[in-house]
Simulated scan of single mutants.
Amino acid sequence: MEAVLVVNADLGPLHRVSVQHAIRMLCRRVAEIHEAEPDRSIGGYPLPRVVRLIRYVVTRWRFGSGPVWSRSGVLARDQHRCAYCGRFATTVDHVLPRSRGGRNTWRNTVAACYGCNQRKGDRTPAEADMPLRYEPVAPSWAMLAGR
Rank of each mutant, 00 (worst) to 15 (best):
H21N: 13
H21A: 15
H21D: 13
A22R: 04
A22Q: 04
A22I: 01
A22C: 14
A22H: 02
I23K: 03
M25Q: 06
M25R: 03
M25S: 07
M25T: 01
L26C: 05
C27S: 13
C27A: 09
C27Q: 15
C27T: 06
C27I: 08
R28V: 01
R28N: 12
R28Q: 14
R28C: 04
V30H: 07
A31W: 04
A31P: 09
E32C: 09
I33Q: 04
I33H: 04
I33F: 10
H34L: 12
H34Y: 14
A36D: 12
A36C: 09
A36V: 02
E37H: 13
E37G: 00
P38E: 14
D39G: 01
D39I: 00
D39H: 10
R40V: 15
R40K: 13
S41I: 01
S41Q: 14
I42W: 08
I42D: 08
G43K: 00
G43F: 13
G43N: 11
G43I: 06
G44K: 03
Y45Q: 08
Y45N: 06
Y45L: 11
P46A: 11
L47N: 02
L47K: 13
P48V: 10
P48Q: 10
V50W: 07
V51L: 05
V51E: 05
V51W: 03
R52G: 06
R52A: 13
R52S: 13
R52M: 12
R52W: 10
R52E: 11
L53E: 00
L53G: 05
I54N: 06
I54K: 13
I54V: 15
I54H: 13
R55L: 14
R55H: 14
Y56T: 05
Y56H: 15
V57I: 11
V57Q: 11
V57F: 05
V57W: 06
V58R: 11
V58C: 09
V58S: 15
V58W: 05
V58D: 15
T59P: 00
T59W: 05
T59M: 09
R60V: 11
R60D: 09
R60S: 09
R60L: 14
R60E: 12
R62M: 15
R62C: 08
R62H: 15
F63L: 08
F63I: 03
G64M: 12
S65F: 14
G66V: 07
G66N: 10
G66D: 07
G66T: 05
P67H: 09
P67D: 08
P67L: 10
P67E: 08
V68T: 10
W69V: 04
S70H: 07
S70D: 08
R71K: 15
R71S: 10
R71C: 07
S72R: 15
S72V: 07
V74R: 02
L75I: 00
L75T: 00
A76F: 00
A76W: 02
A76N: 03
A76S: 07
R77I: 01
R77F: 05
D78Y: 00
D78M: 00
D78V: 00
Q79H: 12
Q79D: 05
H80C: 06
R81W: 02
R81G: 03
C82D: 03
C82M: 04
A83H: 01
A83P: 01
A83L: 02
A83K: 03
Y84E: 08
Y84L: 04
Y84A: 02
Y84V: 04
C85E: 06
C85M: 03
C85A: 08
C85I: 04
C85W: 01
C85S: 06
